[in-house]
Amino acid sequence: MTDPLLSVRNLTMDIPVGGGTLHAVRGIDFDLNRGETLCIVGESGSGKSLTSLALMGLLGKGIQRSADRMTFDGIELTKASKRQMRALRGGRMSMIFQEPMTSLNPAYTIGDQLAEALLLHRTVTREQARARAVELLEKVGITAAESRLSQYPHQLSGGLRQRVMIAMALMCEPELIIADEPTTALDVTIQAQILRLLYDLGREMNMAMILITHDLGVVARVADKVAVMYAGELVETGPVAEIFNTPSHPYTRGLLRCIPLPGKTERGKSLGTIPGIVPSLVGSVEGCVFRTRCPHATMECRGAIPQHHDGEHAFRCIFADGKRHSDKELTA
């Protein structure tokens, strides 16, 4: 078996805040092979975006990142120089952001901004870069691509801007593309189109993709692997079929009960909710972070939490199958 394109071990991020340290992300492990799609799911503030920014080397000042390993095609990202990271960013790994309305520079034309992505990494002429821009605009389904080059961001709708962002991310044919909730800011009718487009292009170009979302319906359709994050930890990870068929961590099961799934959710029965709120991550974080909201929690959940492995499927819980067996689940 070949080495994974991306391999992350024990990725941790701390943010110094007023009253101590915010342990925003703790001990993330995952691997991603070429051509695979990993969906990271979890609620707001669970560390999904931070994780993706850490991979790109785009964390803001004041965030301390550490990892035992964080390699991209064998390059150790934690030790890479700024120059090396710049060569990777936009060249071999690209990112698509959540906010298409504000992610394009208002002062430059679409053509200039697209061409820049290629000119920064390849020795090509402006004409070649513009030709490539037209090619990609057509690929992302923008009509009259040639004439769009001289337009400015404010002249385009949100959906079009996100297509431009996708085209820009693809300019150098990256091996990895990270999309951080790429459709959250868009109309519902556009969301499906954009996701379909990303998915198809990813397959066509054999790109690995990390898709951050909290839409489990999307996950079911596009993911090869799923990583479930809760309060800065990866609580469960595995192939998409296993996560949906045999969710093991209580949080994953709770999440799945919150969405209607064809064939699984009974008609007329109300959807589940997860009671409680996410705990504060300032100060020391010990034991299972989900215990305050978990129907199975016991005293032992305050201690060290073992990781259970079954092939690629892994989760963190003191119970070998994620359940306490003495009583039934409370919210069932």
């Binding site: 785009l58 990777l88 690209s94 504000t102 394009l104 520079n105 208002p106 820049e116």
Partner: peptide, 26 residues
């Protein structure tokens, strides 16, 4: 602190380019 500056960095632009071409212009 705007999103398009983050985009410029994500493209692989160096700091000089980010500061003068993308930020100062605006």
């Amino acid at each position: 602190s705007s999103d398009y500056i983050r985009t410029a960095r994500a493209k692989g632009a160096n700091e000089t380019r980010v500061l003068f071409r993308h930020a100062l212009r605006n």
